[in-house]
Each structure stands twice: as structure tokens, then as C-alpha cells.
Design a protein around this nucleic acid. Structure first.
Length: 927
RNA sequence: GGGCAAUUAGCUCAGUUGGCUAGAGCGCGCCCCUGAUAAGGGCGAGGUCCCUGGUUCGACUCCAGGAUUGCCCA
């Protein structure tokens, strides 16, 4: 007879194989159908809100792995917080304006911005940005990210732009914004100023030259100098093309400078760098005539080698003796430190370059029209011709490059708009101290950056962005910016979008009747520059969080890649400070970046870019999501195929555990079959005690953003506590006991709790799989909400927190390890085939022996053997010993345990008495 | 050159206030099961806890210096 029909074998249509790439899109469709975002929001109506403000990714391509990580971490957090009882509106956003889009229009559409009208150019930019918003929206949703995808915020929205103009006006009217001629990083390929965060340093080889500047009145300082002798200050520079911009030479106050004679000429430079420099110049035969400290040299007049003008000797703190001659070529139009010196020492600021980096006529006829970097040769030629070029070598050094076109940038003095950071710094630092930073060292990191950050250059010489709403009087040139003009522009932009600024003349953009407060004239021109894209996103709290009916200020959380300490975390703070607001965030979480298995950063140029679509199309988004909780996201994240394989394997384990639970609950109705804790068997209470522990740890981990503990704890629980032990032990009860027996119902009561809690706990991470499991859970309990996302986070059930039980089982588990080892040994020695054929005797010290004995008949079940008994230590034994023998009797055909009573029933000659009894009582309808 | 951080088995991580033979999962090797089966179970081999000093009865844990790596800045 086939006894399999008299067993409660597994039964479920929950598939073992996930086929996530096929299954996930179906679940997505279903979420859309039931409008999961709205349902979740409604289920939390009236609950306290918890707001994560989305940092807008830049819409100029497919999403990359870092963006996938970012959005998934946000999603995990929001889903967790929702389950914890909060109402969590999530409004995703996109950064849509700025240089990257303009460049993409050029490359993708092949349009030259100089050849089309500005409005057409802007419309192309908008078209492209919106295209990528669509693409990214699809891709983010595919990752399982839940949010208000139908109503995202875009920085190009009219309302956004209008609020941004309003914010600028408020900040500017408080005197926190100024316009100044100042050297800024300038990319002459992109024809725009670049902010510090748009610079990348690349090693390159440059010229390094020594140049002689003739001293006009050296004899004032050095009476050793013979009448009519020529003396030169020697400078060293790696950018020959900046020589035309030289307006001074800086020396260090306390350094000793030596006047040396070589051949018939005299040279002046720092004593300490003398031998090195003279060697480079090729004048090894020289003598020191005199020395003077730097401070004595101040005010000496030096003749510029190329032009008829004087470059005075000045003091500067930044002069060092690390390189060069200790006499520093100073071109205030081409360097920030030089610029600062020029302010202190009243040097001229000369920057004879146009937007494209070409020398203007100011540089003289030989240089006019040449592009600066390429003009090096010509400058060298000119210096050579006048005998000023002493030596020419090369040097390898880090040089700033444009982050977009990767070409070298220059410093160029231009009129730019700045936010006055000095006025806001203290407030910003106070706010930083008030904010919670995760990880904690993020605080010292951003504080350090904020302390030393120079004024923020916020203007860009481009057109795809929000205009700087300033006018200039055509008569006196004075800038015009009043509450009225700002409000007027703001209203026009709110109605027509920022295009209106570019479509209309100044007269049509100012309130009628406006006159210049300085000279009374009524004719104006408009500011040509737009705001940096970092202003756009930095204003998001003012443009989105403030006015949005569902959001509020400040946000509970900002969560971005840790490059944002220098960018969005900061720009948002500066804007808030400028507006007189507290920080826009209460907590800020920074996450690391991906590196490949060799530890190299993922980048296009290295060709090691990973497309998240490839991963979710191959493994599924849930595996991708699980991966992001596999490693500590606050550090760099490694990517390799090996790691993905591991994660996929772990996914299968979790999935199969859930499947096993489901498959044993088909005949269980929690309402009628569930048992109270005091009616449950000890092992089942132990399982729920262990579940409590996982819930506790998971909750703490999520609260502390120790997300990687999720993977390790949940997976460890499934693998160790459940698969390897509890579920394995339970099989005998679940399969062979009477369906309605107390033991089986006790087990099922625990299994049901395990299944529910586990499914809820994985819901924020394995968001697709959780709902797939949940659907099957609802077959057991229809009163459950339709999605796990609508469930409450599991709670610790204190009825199972039994310390005595915990200790008791901990000791048992230790002994179990020894039993397993003994069984393995017996198997190797050929004494038994497998554990089920074994009978074990455990000789244990008294305490242990009593503990084991207290389990009675359950002991053999716990060790998954046919028979087990505990005895006191025998003579000569000092510690626990396990004796393994072949179990007596035959193998029962039904329960597979060995028993001596087999054959005693004529009706069922192959069954043990226990099974015979059960068969006889087996419910009719299940036979 | 400066700031912030990291460094525990092949991989990803644990390791409370310094204290028994440093743990887990995966991977690997060997074996068992075939009533979780493109599943499940057992055992095993893998570690100078980056290095060097110091404090201490005792340091993976604390201190100093160094190395390497990553990010940011110059």
C-alpha cells in the first residue's frame, strides 16, 4: 500500500523557481492597478508623517548603478518607516537644467548652440531632459521603488523656476549675493565658469619655465650692485601663457633672498632654492653677492618682460620654498591666491582672454587671437626673443580639468555672481551641529568643508537654466534688483516659464514705470547669465518641500551618495541659511560608491560600468535590492559576478524557506487551529523566541541604517535556525502526525507566525517576493491586507521571551553540535548509513544529563535519529560522550524511523505501532 | 600636501565597556538524503584580526607611528 497518501506532505503552488525577470513586471502592473502608493498613503492617513526629500538625479541618461542604489535605499527606508506606522509621502524629483543637458543636445542632436536662436536651443534642451525623465521614471519603477511617480517635481517646472527666482531675490536683497571680477575656473571649451565641484584633477605634463624679470631699481636695496649692472628677479611657472597677466611678483616675508652674480648678470631668488634653480638655468658658476629677507624687497619695481609696465614685488603668505625660486609669478586674473594677493597689495587684475580662451588685443598683436593653452609656444618665443627665458623644462603634476569635457581648465577673471559664504558660515556650522549625520563622521567631514569653503560662484554663462533676475541701467550701468522687480519676474516665470526671460526684452520684464534708483533712467538690459545647476537643486527644499501640500519643512531625511557632502547637502544648506531658515534636514545619510572587484571606481572611461538593467533582467530587481543590503552601503560597495551569485543563492534560500512554511500551512486556519502559547510545544516556543530575536535585531538595524545586517540576520535565521534545525526537526511531526494533532497544530501556529513576520520583514527589501508570498498567505488568512506593504512591521511577542527556555536551548544546541559530529564519525566508520538509522546514547555530566532527559521522547526528534537516550557519565568518562549504534528493528515504511515493533500489525506489516495508530485514526476525507 | 574614513578566513560581514581554543553565511573539499528535490542535511579545510612599537596580568579591541585603499580638497 502507498502510505504517502496518509501523510501531510508539502502542498503549495508557490513556485520554487522565482523567475523574477518575468514575474516582477507582472507584480509591477498589479501595483499600478491597485495604486499601491495611494493605498499605502491612505492606510496611514492621520498618522505622523515621516518625510524623505528626494535629491533630484540628473536626467541625462539611463540610470546607473549608483542611482539604483540610492533610490533603492530610499525605498527600503520609506517602506520600513511606513510599516512602522508613519505616513511617508515620497515625491521623486529630477534635475533637468544645466550644462550636461546642453552638451547632450549638442552630441545627440548635433545642434550647435551658437547657430540656433536661444529659445529653440532651450526647447531642445527641455525635450531631451524630459525624454530622460521618462526613461528614468520607468527604470526606477522597475526597481520596485514606490512613490508618487505621476507627480514628480522637475527643476524645469514653471512653479519651481518661479520659486527659485523668488529665493534668489530674497537672498540677494539681504545683501548675501554680490557680483565681482574674480578668477574662476573657466572651461574655454564649454565656454563657462565652473564651480569647484565641477573640477577633476588629472595628471598631466606641463612646461615649467624660469623667467627673468628685470629689476628697475635694485640698487636701492643692494648697494653691492655695480652702477649700470642688470639684475633680475627669477620666477618659475608651469603656465607660460599667464605671463601676459603678470602684475606682480610675490616673496615670502621671512625667507632669505640671495642676489647672485653669474657671468655679467645678477639674479635674485630664494637662498634655499638657489642651487637647484641655478642648476636648472644652467649657470653653475655663480657667487652670492648679498642676501636680504623677503620683507626688505617689498616695493621694488620689476619690469614686465613683454609689456611696458611695472610688476611690483609684494609679500604673500602662500609663497613656499617647495618648488620654483621663492619669487612667485603673480597673475591675479589667473589664480585665486594671486587674486587675493592683488586685493591686499592693490595689484591690477588683468585677464586678456575671451570666453573661448583666446587672447584679446590687450595681450598685444603677437598673441591676440591665440588660444591660451596653445599660445604657450608663442609666449616662450617672445620671452626667448627678449632674453627673459632662462630655462625650460617639463613637470608632471595634477592639473584641474573640466568634469564634463575632461579638458584642462584655466583660471580667468570674469564678472560673476557669488553667494557670500562668510556671512552664512557660522549659521551653517550651527545647523550642521544640530543635524544627525549617518555615518557620524559625516558631520566632521561636511563641517570641515564648510569651514574652508570660499564664496560660492553661482552664475553660469549658458542659457539652459533659470535666469539671474537682475537688470542693468543702460545709462549708469547700475544693477537693478528690488522686491518689485523680483516679484514681477517671478510672476511672469510662474505663468510662462523661464523662457519668458529669453523671449522678452528687459522693458517687458520689469514692472511698468521702473526707473533706475541711481540715475533715474528708464532703460535697462537684462543679466545674461543663468544660475548654476547646483542652485537649482539647492533650492529644492524651497521650491518643493515648502509649497507641496503633503510635504513639510524640514525633511526627516536626506539620503544621497557621499559626494554630496560637497554638493547638494551643502548647497541646500547655503540656500536655507540665505533664506534665514534652519537646515532643511534633520538627518542626513551618505552612502558610498561602487568599485569593481579590483577596487577600482566604476567609470565610463575605465569601461567597467555596470548597467543595473543587466542585473535586474538577469537576476531580478529583488536580487539587486538584496545585494544592496549585503554590504555596508556607507563604505565603498564592491561589484563582481561572484558577489551577485552569492546574493542570488541567498535569495533562493530565503524564498525556499518561505515556500516550505507555506507548504505546511495549507490545512491551517489560524482562527480555529492556532494554539495559545501555553499549549504550544517547547520547540515551537523556542522558534518564536528566536523569531523575537531577529525582529529585535532587524528593527534596531533598520533604525540605525545598519542595512547590511538584514541580509546576514535574515539569511542566517533562515539557514541556521530554520532550515538546518527547526524545520528539519519538525518534518516528522508535520508529515506523519495526525493533521489535527496538538503537536502539529502547535508547530503550525509557530510556522504561521514565522511566515508572517518573515514576509513582513523582507517586504522593504525583497519587495516583489514579499508580495508574491503574501498573496499565498492570504489563502490562509483572507483578512490580511492585499499587500505586505500595507502590513505593520512585526512586533516582538513578549510571551515567548522566556530566558530560562533560551538558556536551556542554548545548552541543547551546543550538545547537538557534538551529536552531529559523532554521527558523522559513525557514518565515516561505516557503523551507520545515515542519522535516521542510528540510535544514540549520550553520556553527560549530571546537569546536562538531566537537561537531555527532560526532553523525554522528543530527544530523538531533536537529533533526528531513530532513538536517543541520555545517561550519566560512565566510569572513566570526564566529559560528554556520544555513543552511536545501528538502531534496532526495521525501517517503518511510513515515518522512516527504525522500530522494533514493525510487523506487529497484520494489517500494516511494514509500519511501526505509532504509524499504525495514526493510520487508524486518520480522517476519512484525507485518506 | 591637507581633511574624512576603511583595513578580521577566497567573498560579504559579526565580534557590547580590553578576558575562555576569533564567529556566521556564501564559496571550496568530502559525505548523506531523495516526503523542501533545478531543493534539504552533516562534517571538514581555510585567519601573524594590515605592520611596528607602547599601555596592561592580558589587546582584534586602547594609544602612537607607519603602510595600503577609497572619497573629498589643494
Amino acid at each position: 500500500m502507498d502510505y504517502t497518501k496518509t501523510l501531510n506532505l508539502l502542498k503549495t503552488d508557490f513556485p520554487m523557481r522565482a523567475k523574477l525577470p518575468e514575474r516582477e513586471p507582472e507584480i509591477l502592473d498589479w501595483w499600478q492597478q491597485i495604486n499601491i502608493y495611494q493605498q499605502v498613503r491612505e492606510s496611514r492617513r492621520g498618522a505622523p508623517t515621516w518625510i524623505l526629500h528626494d535629491g533630484p538625479p540628473y536626467a541625462n541618461g539611463n540610470i546607473h548603478l549608483g542611482q539604483a542604489l540610492n533610490k533603492i535605499l530610499k525605498d527600503i527606508t520609506i517602506k520600513y518607516k511606513t510599516m512602522r506606522g508613519y505616513d511617508c509621502p515620497y515625491v521623486p524629483g529630477w534635475d533637468t537644467q544645466g550644462l550636461p543637458t546642453e552638451q547632450a543636445v549638442q552630441t545627440e542632436y548635433g545642434i550647435d548652440r551658437h547657430e540656433v536662436p536661444v529659445l529653440e536651443w532651450r526647447s531642445k534642451c527641455q525635450e531631451l531632459a524630459l525624454k530622460y525623465v521618462e526613461i528614468q521614471r520607468e527604470q526606477f519603477q522597475r526597481l520596485g521603488v514606490r512613490g508618487d511617480w505621476h507627480n514628480p517635481y522637475l527643476t524645469l517646472d514653471k512653479d519651481y523656476q518661479a520659486r527659485q527666482i523668488e529665493a534668489f531675490g530674497k537672498i540677494a536683497l539681504q545683501g548675501l549675493v554680490y557680483r565681482s571680477l574674480r578668477p574662476v575656473y573657466w572651461c574655454y571649451h564649454c565656454e563657462t565658469a565652473l564651480a569647484e565641484d565641477e573640477i577633476e584633477y588629472v595628471t598631466r605634463t606641463s612646461d615649467a619655465i624660469y623667467v627673468a624679470f628685470e629689476l628697475r631699481d635694485a640698487d636701492q636695496c643692494f648697494d653691492q650692485l655695480p652702477q649700470g649692472a642688470r639684475a633680475h628677479v627669477v620666477i618659475w611657472t608651469t603656465t607660460p601663457w599667464t605671463i601676459p597677466g603678470n602684475t606682480g611678483i610675490a616673496v615670502g616675508e621671512h625667507y632669505e633672498y640671495a642676489l647672485v652674480k653669474a657671468k655679467d648678470d645678477y639674479y635674485l631668488m630664494a637662498q634655499e632654492l638657489l642651487s637647484e634653480s641655478m642648476q636648472q638655468i644652467g649657470l653653475s658658476d655663480y657667487e652670492v653677492v648679498a642676501t636680504r629677507p623677503g620683507k626688505d624687497l617689498v616695493g621694488l619695481a620689476v619690469q614686465h618682460p613683454l609689456y611696458d609696465r611695472i610688476s611690483p614685488l609684494v609679500l604673500a603668505d602662500h609663497v613656499t620654498l617647495e618648488q620654483g625660486t621663492g619669487a612667485v609669478h603673480t597673475a591675479p586674473g589667473h589664480g585665486l591666491e594671486d587674486y587675493q594677493v592683488s586685493l591686499e597689495c592693490d595689484l591690477d587684475i588683468i585677464s586678456p582672454l575671451d570666453d573661448c580662451g583666446r587672447f584679446t588685443d590687450e595681450a598685444g598683436p603677437e598673441l591676440a587671437g591665440l588660444v591660451c593653452d596653445e599660445a604657450n609656444e608663442k609666449v616662450l618665443e617672445l620671452l626667448e626673443a627678449c632674453g627673459a627665458l632662462l630655462a625650460r623644462t617639463t613637470i608632471e603634476h595634477e592639473y584641474p580639468h573640466c568634469w564634463r569635457c575632461h579638458l584642462p581648465v584655466i583660471y580667468r577673471a570674469t564678472l560673476q555672481w557669488f553667494m557670500d559664504i562668510d556671512q552664512l558660515r557660522d549659521q551653517a556650522l550651527t545647523e550642521i551641529a544640530e543635524t544627525t549625520w549617518i555615518p557620524a563622521w559625516g558631520e566632521s567631514r561636511i563641517a570641515g568643508m564648510v569651514e574652508s569653503r570660499p564664496d560660492w560662484c553661482i552664475s553660469r554663462q549658458r542659457s539652459w537654466g533659470v535666469p539671474i533676475p537682475v537688470f542693468y541701467c543702460t545709462d549708469c550701468g547700475e544693477a537693478l534688483l528690488t522686491e518689485e522687480t523680483v516679484a514681477h519676474v517671478r510672476d511672469l516665470v510662474a505663468e510662462h516659464g523661464a523662457d519668458v526671460w529669453f523671449a522678452r526684452e528687459a522693458a517687458e520684464l520689469i514692472p511698468p514705470g521702473t526707473t533706475c534708483p541711481e540715475c533715474g533712467a528708464d532703460s535697462f538690459i537684462k543679466e545674461p547669465d543663468i544660475m548654476s545647476v547646483w542652485v537649482d537643486s539647492g533650492c529644492s527644499h524651497y521650491c518643493v518641500m515648502r509649497p507641496h501640500p503633503e510635504l513639510s519643512y524640514p525633511a526627516d531625511l536626506y539620503l544621497e551618495g557621499d559626494d554630496q557632502y560637497q554638493c547638494w547637502f551643502q548647497t541646500s544648506l547655503w540656500v536655507a541659511a540665505g533664506l534665514g531658515d534652519p537646515a532643511p534636514y534633520k538627518t542626513v545619510v551618505g552612502h558610498g560608491f561602487f568599485v569593481d572587484d579590483g577596487g577600482q571606481k566604476l567609470s565610463k572611461s575605465k569601461g567597467n560600468i555596470i548597467d543595473p538593467a543587466e542585473i535586474y533582467n538577469k537576476y531580478g530587481a529583488d536580487v539587486l535590492r538584496l545585494w544592496f543590503t549585503y554590504a555596508d552601503f556607507r563604505q565603498k560597495m564592491h561589484h563582481s559576478e561572484d558577489i551577485l551569485q552569492q546574493v542570488a543563492e541567498a535569495y533562493r534560500r530565503i524564498r525556499n524557506t518561505a515556500r516550505f512554511l507555506l507548504a505546511n500551512l495549507r490545512d491551517f486556519d489560524p482562527a480555529t487551529d492556532g494554539l495559545a502559547p501555553d499549549q504550544m510545544r517547547e520547540i515551537d516556543r523556542w522558534a518564536l523566541l528566536r523569531l523575537n530575536r531577529v525582529i529585535k535585531r532587524m528593527t534596531e538595524a533598520f533604525d540605525r541604517w545598519d542595512l547590511h545586517l538584514f541580509y546576514h540576520d535574515v539569511h542566517g535565521f533562515c539557514a541556521n535556525d530554520l532550515s538546518a534545525f527547526y524545520l528539519n526537526v519538525l518534518k516528522d511531526t508535520l508529515y506523519t502526525d495526525l493533521p489535527d494533532s496538538p503537536a502539529r497544530r502547535s508547530a503550525q501556529t509557530a510556522l504561521w507566525q514565522l511566515l508572517l513576520a518573515l514576509t513582513k520583514m523582507i517586504a522593504p527589501v525583497l519587495t516583489f517576493t514579499a508580495d508574491e508570498i503574501w498573496e499565498h498567505c492570504r489563502e490562509t488568512d483572507l483578512s490580511l491586507p492585499v499587500s505586505a506593504q500595507l502590513a505593520d512591521w512585526p512586533r516582538v511577542d513578549e510571551r515567548f521571551d522566556d530566558e530560562e527556555l533560551r538558556v536551556r536551548w542554548e545548552r541543547l544546541m551546543q550538545m547537538r553540535t557534538q551529536v552531529s559530529a559523532a554521527l558523522e564519525q559513525a557514518k565515516e566508520d561505516g557503523e551507520i548509513d545515515q542519522p535516521l538509522t542510528a540510535a544514540i546514547t549520550i553520556y553527560a555530566p549530571e546537569d546536562e544529563q538531566q537537561l537531555l532527559a527532560s526532553f523525554g521522547d522528543d530527544l530523538r526528534m531533536i537529533f533526528v535519529v531513530s532513538a536517543a537516550q541520555a545517561r550519566p557519565l560512565a566510569e572513566g568518562m570526564s566529559e560528554l560522550q556520544v555513543e552511536v549504534a545501528q538502531a534496532r528493528g526495521e525501517k517503518c515504511e511510513r515515518c522512516w524511523l527504525y522500530d522494533e515493533g514493525i510487523g506487529t500489525s497484520p494489517e500494516h506489516p511494514t509500519l511501526c505501532p505509532r504509524c499504525v495508530q495514526r493510520i487508524n485514526q486518520w480522517p476519512e476525507n484525507q485518506q
